[in-house]
């Protein structure tokens, strides 16, 4: 229904069809809130000839604000128990399930066919549950007790790398987004996500899911805008620890990696079809973790007598 039609059909005993549709303002998601871009700029992504609406064009200051939010949330998020993070990821899946119809329709608006859209929504929900399950398990798979040749207890565990800037998939607006956010935050990282420039609507709507899923503010921050405007600002940001890029053109990857070297950021480049099940695996969690090794002496006194 067009705006004009809605106006025409409005009446006193209005039927549904006569009602004026309330249009959605697509905002960004920073620190658990939904601000517009501080720059007050917008762009209109166009899919199959029609505009998706007025979408925020994030500025470097939006990047800065989002990184600040992610950094302040990081310590608290990583100190949550793994069980708690698992439940929150599961909760995201629950909320997404409840809105699957909306996400499917939005994906169709962004150019997917109906069948693919429905599959992607289901897969996104299942992927969240998959990583929810990993929250309290990846540590057991990837940690080690190391049999050092001295009287020390030595173990290596994974710790979140910190703040991860994530450039979401260009062509897979929901599944690609979820497939990176979930493993990044499962271990206790926080992230700033730059939504698909071409198809940003799912990311914005996903923020609404996050906001109602017990995810603490700042754990996931979602920006919309143009990658080329923002590349330098997030790649050089000294408080970003790692960058995940999905499906960018090679020149952009190079630029990001060059800037990233200024503070030895970890940069992970992905090019994958997220609808294949194999792309969901705990190695993605490990990609955004650091290995920490801890040593401690073991006193040498036993039933056979002291060694002192």
């Amino acid at each position: 229904m067009t705006v004009e039609e809605s106006n025409k059909n409005s009446g006193e005993n209005s039927a549904k069809s006569e009602r004026l549709e309330v249009l959605k303002t697509y905002k960004m998601y920073i620190d658990g809130k939904f601000p517009r871009t501080e720059s007050a700029r917008y762009y209109q992504p166009v899919v199959n000839g029609s505009s998706l609406g007025n979408v925020c064009l994030a500025s470097r200051k939006d990047v800065r604000n989002a990184v600040v939010a992610a950094r302040s949330a990081q310590a608290g998020w990583s100190r949550r128990t793994a069980y708690n993070r698992a439940q929150i990821l599961y909760r995201i899946a629950e909320m997404l399930e409840g809105r699957s119809q909306q996400f499917s329709e939005e994906l169709v608006r962004q150019g997917l066919d109906v069948e693919t859209a429905e599959i992607h929504v289901s897969q996104s929900i299942d992927r969240l549950i998959y990583y929810a399950g990993w929250c309290d398990k990846y540590q057991q798979v990837f940690s080690a007790v190391n049999p050092v040749a001295s009287s020390h207890f030595n173990f290596s565990t994974l710790e979140p790398v910190g703040v991860v800037f994530t450039v979401a998939s260009r062509d897979c607006p929901l599944l690609g987004l979820v497939s990176l956010i979930a493993p990044v935050i499962a271990s206790g990282n926080t992230c700033v996500v730059l939504a698909s420039e071409k198809c940003p609507l799912s990311a914005v709507t996903f923020a609404e899911v996050l906001a109602t899923s017990d995810v603490p503010g700042g754990v996931v921050n979602i920006l919309t805008g143009r990658i080329k405007e923002l590349t330098e600002h997030f790649s050089r940001h000294l408080d970003v620890n790692a960058i995940a890029c999905d499906g960018l053109e090679p020149g952009l990857n190079t630029e990001i990696k060059e800037f990233a070297s200024e503070n030895i950021k970890r940069v992970k480049i992905y090019h994958q079809d997220w609808s294949t099940e194999a792309t969901a695996n705990p190695y993605l969690i490990q990609d955004f973790c650091e290995v920490k090794t801890t040593w401690h002496p073991i006193e040498q006194i036993s039933e056979s007598g002291a060694a002192y």
Partner: peptide
């Protein structure tokens, strides 16, 4: 009270 002793360090 006496200072703690770490046996491995002493050895």
């Amino acid at each position: 009270s006496s200072p703690a002793i770490d046996q491995v360090g002493v050895v």
